[in-house]
Amino acid sequence: MNGSSGTLDGAVVAVAGAAGPAGRATLLKLADAGATVVGADADPERLAEAVSAAQDAHGGATVVGDTVDLLDLGATRAWAERVEKDFGRVDGLVHLVGGWRGGPSFTKTDLADWDLLEKLLVRTVQNTSLAFHEGLMRSDRGRYLLISAAGASKPTAGNAAYAAAKAAAEAWTLAMGDQFRKSGGEDGPAAAAAILVVKALVHDAMRAERPQAKFAGFTDVKELADAIAGVWDRPAREVNGNRLWLTEKP
């Protein structure tokens, strides 16, 4: 893919958790749509690979990476400030920090799983939303996008910790959306916080590892990336404070 489709021309979008398969697909899509893309991840080597792949695919695009500890609010605020200082604006934060732990049953839940998932799935949402809120408010098309799972709305016995963490992240994001709504007054929100909901994600390496698997209801990371970029095509009033379902509602 070379060139740009232009739907995000001039926009600056930060991607948290940019080194994983969904992050890589999102870097590629946002660059293709014309955005300047700033990826962050805790793994510098994987982040460098993801950024390099996006740069190679889009010779004219600006794609950069920054190793950031998103569990540290101060470090996350500093990252948000750098993005806006370096590029003059910030128009989006896409939250792709993931993680999963589960157990065989509800009573066999290991609370150490919650300790981990609370950090990965909740604290990183809290820190990125607080750090980027003001910058997104200064944008004419600010978007905060959380990627969540259908299990948050219909938890299963063995996924109590995961579903509870996802539900908490959703609630936090919707609260941010309410702030955007209130700040917009009668004119409606200028920025939007929204949740893209999937059953689970699948990518080419997973298919190669399990060629017989159906992955029924899963969302391909490329389709997710398309949906992420597409949020900027819709008015803030339409998407703010909403769950955008990419799978069937449970």
Rank of each mutant, 00 (worst) to 15 (best):
D113H: 10
D113N: 07
W114T: 00
W114N: 04
D115M: 00
D115N: 05
D115L: 00
L116I: 00
L116T: 01
L116F: 01
L116E: 01
L117S: 02
L117D: 02
E118H: 12
E118S: 10
K119V: 01
K119R: 14
L120V: 08
L120F: 02
L121G: 03
L121F: 05
V122R: 11
T124S: 10
V125G: 03
Q126R: 03
S129K: 04
S129I: 12
L130C: 02
L130G: 06
L130W: 03
L130A: 14
F132L: 14
F132M: 14
E134F: 04
E134V: 14
G135I: 07
M137S: 13
M137W: 06
R138A: 15
S139W: 07
S139P: 09
S139N: 06
D140V: 12
D140W: 10
R141F: 03
G142W: 07
G142R: 09
G142K: 08
R143W: 05
L145C: 07
L145M: 13
L145D: 09
L146F: 06
I147P: 02
I147V: 15
S148E: 11
S148Y: 07
S148C: 13
S148R: 05
A149V: 11
A150L: 09
A150V: 14
A150T: 14
G151C: 12
G151L: 15
A152V: 07
A152M: 13
S153G: 13
